[in-house]
């Protein structure tokens, strides 16, 4: 975020090609909205620790891919030869495919988290389940003694 704004400031204040390139990179990143999936992931609350960890890992992987794509886009601005450009386009294409796959996986995980969202009351009831089995056996013992008499 800081580098993006630095690039914009330099483009405006310094008017240098580097500053201009940085602002193009910043604008490109903003169009991609790289943090939209992070905001979506943060909005879903689940008590399932495994699911939470998986969402965080995929989200981190998406952020890494965005960074790598940004680096390639910046390099594309400075590429001199057609060969360099072709290589960078191929890398960007590969990254975009992985990005799409991971985004689909993230949406599946988020859908699953939303479908099984736990509230504080779910966690509280789960915590006492073992104790309640002990109490149920005590109740059952009283009923069994009473039923035997009847």
């Amino acid at each position: 975020m800081g580098m993006r704004w630095l690039g914009v400031v330099m483009a405006v204040v310094l008017g240098t090609p580097w500053g201009a390139g940085a602002s193009v990179w910043a604008a490109g990143s903003a169009d991609e909205a790289p943090h939209a999936h992070q905001m979506e992931a943060a909005a879903v609350v689940t008590e399932d620790a495994v699911l939470k960890e998986q969402i965080a890992k995929v989200d981190e992987a998406l952020a890494t891919i965005h960074e790598q794509m940004a680096v390639r886009r910046q390099a594309l601005q400075q590429a001199m030869t057609e060969g360099q450009k072709a290589s960078l386009y191929a890398e960007l294409d590969g990254l975009r495919k992985e990005h799409d796959l991971l985004e689909r996986l993230l949406h599946e995980l988020l859908d699953e988290a939303r479908a099984t969202e736990w509230t504080a009351i779910d966690a509280a009831l789960a915590r006492v389940k073992s104790y309640e089995r002990v109490q149920e056996r005590a109740t059952r013992r009283e009923e069994a003694l009473r039923d035997r008499k009847e």
Partner: peptide, 30 residues
Amino acid sequence: TSEVVAAIKRRAQQILEARKAARRLRFSGE
């Protein structure tokens, strides 16, 4: 790029395997 993508693919594969494992039969007892 290929190393980054390979590392990400490995992590995604681990997550898919973990999800498959979560859907398998689970046993517990007291």
